Computed example of a mutant assay.
Amino acid sequence: MAAAATIALFGAGGKMGVRLAKNLQASPYAVRHVEVGAAGQQRLQDELGIHCVSVDAALDGANVVILAVPDTLIGRLAAEIAPKLLPGTMVMTLDAAAPFAGHLPERPDLVYFVAHPCHPPIFNDETNPEARRDFFGGAYAKQSIVSALMQGTDEDFAVGEAIAKVIYQPILRSYRLSVEQMALLEPGLSETVCATLLDVMREAMDEVVARGVPADAARDFLLGHMTILGAVIFKEIPGQFSDACNKAIAFGKPRLMRDDWKQVFEREEIAESIRRIT
């Protein structure tokens, strides 16, 4: 596969698709954009001056197909376009859920590649004001990425990783994982654990506000402590907690967490979580 591949971008007018389309505009790749929604088509035209094409026109001569569509649509869309794909075509998804769940067609002659952003880290060296406010990534702030080659060759991985570095730029670091490892990271680590606990923290903040603490004081106190506690826990700085803090953790963890909470990382639990998503 040539380094400067021809890409068919499906879902180009969606939230993620537009981000990808923008980054691909300044790349050496030839891109055909597919978007079924009128609003998405208009957004591409207004923001990027991009005209969409039909599915057949997009796939004609394309050797990479990016599915920037919701997880619930990937299986159906992949099945619809698979008969039109030549052997050796790369199908790239932006999340491991659908590939992990087996929603991609049985086509051993195709390349299946997955790439996902880590998003800009909390602890960073960004100085540009726009980069400091780029919490999602893919615009101004550097972020790492994780990629997996579900089927294909090492040469195919290099092609997919090169594209991933463009669509998620600017890049901090790039990691090669398996699809199963990516599923452990999301939904396992990032959503089932991290998003859930952060949601609980927000509920806890709202609770102390309901009990009389001024809202701004509670927010500043919690976010400030998240910074210093996170810096110590994740070894961003040398340090250790006070005896009082360690005692609070020792009491709080069994009060808040089930003893078997790590079972959320068992393959069956991950598979069930992905089944609900897809």
Score class of each variant (00 low, 15 high):
residue 124 N to K: 01
residue 35 E to R: 01
residue 92 M to W: 03
residue 96 A to Q: 10
residue 69 V to M: 08
residue 99 P to D: 10
residue 115 A to V: 10
residue 110 L to F: 12
residue 132 R to A: 15
residue 125 D to L: 09
residue 42 Q to E: 15
residue 102 G to A: 10
residue 174 S to Q: 09
residue 154 D to K: 01
residue 116 H to V: 07
residue 117 P to C: 06
residue 64 V to C: 11
residue 90 M to E: 08
residue 166 V to W: 02
residue 106 E to Y: 09
residue 50 I to L: 13
residue 49 G to Q: 07
residue 56 D to L: 10
residue 152 G to A: 09
residue 82 A to S: 13
residue 152 G to S: 07
residue 127 T to M: 04
residue 42 Q to I: 04
residue 145 I to F: 00
residue 54 S to I: 06
residue 85 L to S: 06
residue 119 H to R: 09
residue 165 K to E: 15
residue 167 I to L: 11
residue 73 L to P: 00
residue 44 L to D: 10
residue 74 I to F: 02
residue 95 D to G: 15
residue 65 V to D: 02
residue 77 L to N: 02
residue 169 Q to M: 14
residue 170 P to N: 10
residue 94 L to A: 03
residue 135 F to G: 12
residue 40 G to A: 08
residue 150 M to Y: 08
residue 94 L to D: 05
residue 142 K to G: 02
residue 159 V to M: 11
residue 48 L to M: 12
residue 110 L to G: 05
residue 118 C to V: 14
residue 120 P to S: 03
residue 172 L to M: 14
residue 123 F to G: 01
residue 137 G to V: 04
residue 135 F to W: 09
residue 123 F to K: 05
residue 148 A to I: 06
residue 54 S to Q: 02
residue 103 H to C: 15
residue 127 T to W: 00
residue 53 V to F: 04
residue 40 G to R: 06
residue 80 E to I: 02
residue 161 E to I: 09
residue 56 D to Y: 02
residue 66 I to F: 00
residue 73 L to D: 10
residue 61 G to A: 05
residue 41 Q to P: 04
residue 113 F to Y: 08
residue 154 D to Q: 09
residue 64 V to K: 04
residue 42 Q to S: 11
residue 57 A to C: 06
residue 106 E to K: 13
residue 144 S to R: 04
residue 126 E to I: 07
residue 94 L to R: 03
residue 119 H to E: 13
residue 162 A to N: 06
